[in-house]
Design a protein around this nucleic acid. Structure first.
Lengths: 211, 211
DNA sequence: ATTACTAATTCACGAGTAA
DNA sequence: TTTACTCGTGAATTAGTAA
């Protein structure tokens, strides 16, 4: 099956170029003994999954295919009907959202791509750490692209949007390419003032479903 | 780590709706004993990964998150710079490719999206079975979309293109949404007659790299 | 039919250590 | 420093079987 060691090597890019590492390093990362790391490497080599030259380790075509095959299998199963549901808590935004959404260029594109004129203000929600992977998965999908532009000296970056429903109200998750937020904070826009409409205050729990 | 049992359940859609199965079925599929299947299920249940009601098994939110997390990790590692390299053999196409590429609507869009006017004719290549996963992975990426259209009674479907190099010559892999081919056959278009330019004949090996 | 217990066995692990 | 061997221990597996 899917060996943890090959996953470690993969994360370190051993499928692109030979990786210089030691059995101790692998052991520490995976919380196994050096001996086990050594043994498992030998096994992987015997199975033709990796190739070792001195301290250099690289994942073979065969090994890569194995991983890709697992990845494809997971993808096929997961994406058949993946529900992207985020459980967030309202968090104070900077005033930036309001400013950006007041810009005609953004406003018009959102209207066109998402089908509604955004209320000038974003609702920021903080999702639990275990939903960050879900966010990354979502970002792997193609959303609607809002093009960037320049006004005088300033330039405004691109934004990717995904239609969503926040506590039942249609809106969009927006991911500015240049974001100030960490991966646990997401911004939602909607045709209405979400905070008011839903009587939300700091820390309130919300559910955000992406289509 | 990634338990084979949960992967089995996932493939059978237990994350979408409860799956009716037996420990014997699981054991057979995974080539383990019925006893081991039973024990592992009990363990997964204890860990909160699956829920069991009689013979119905479903993957919990928790379990799904675990899998998604692995999927995201694999994706992040693989897609960092995934080389899509196909090893194909030239296979005879139907004459269809030539016909489609003679249609102005397709021709002009390819010119616009891919940056070259396609030679009217596709090179069909057959890839080995173990590269079909790679093909599926590629199709998961966004390529250039060639819109479909209608002429009188007939309608012509959409085509997805990916820029590629076949034996060093720039071209594009084209995937008509309505294809007559199996998953092991792919079509390549290029600004030149690939068959002639590369002196290819039936069964010749070619390498096709996608950017 | 099933599932899952107990007991026997195999196999993977880490400690110690040589090279 | 490494890596990888041997070996004792314990965990995981299978066989047999009860419910």
């Amino acid at each position: 099956m899917m060996d943890e060691v090959i996953l470690f090597l993969l994360k370190r890019g051993a499928h692109r170029e030979p990786l210089e590492t030691t059995t101790i390093e692998i052991a520490d990362a995976l919380r196994i003994s050096q001996q086990t790391a050594s043994r498992r490497l030998i096994l992987l080599e015997k199975e033709g999954m990796v190739r070792r030259v001195g301290r250099l380790i690289s994942i073979t075509e065969r090994g890569l295919k194995e991983v890709e095959s697992l990845y494809a299998a997971l993808g096929a199963a997961l994406e058949k009907k993946m529900r992207f549901r985020f459980h967030g808590r309202v968090t104070s935004g900077t005033r930036d959202g309001r400013y950006y959404l007041s810009l005609k260029k953004y406003k018009e594109q959102i209207k066109e791509k998402m089908g509604f004129a955004p209320y000038p203000g974003t609702l920021n929600i903080r999702v639990p750490p275990d939903e960050i992977n879900l966010r990354l998965l979502l970002r792997g999908k193609k959303g609607e692209l809002i093009e960037g532009f320049g006004i005088g000296e300033r330039t405004f970056g691109r934004i990717i949007c995904y239609r969503c429903r926040l506590n039942g109200i249609d809106g969009a998750l927006v991911f500015p390419e240049r974001s100030h937020h960490g991966l646990d904070v997401m911004e939602v826009v909607a045709p209405v003032n979400l905070r008011k409409k839903l009587s939300l205050k700091e820390g309130d729990a919300v559910v955000c479903d992406v289509d």
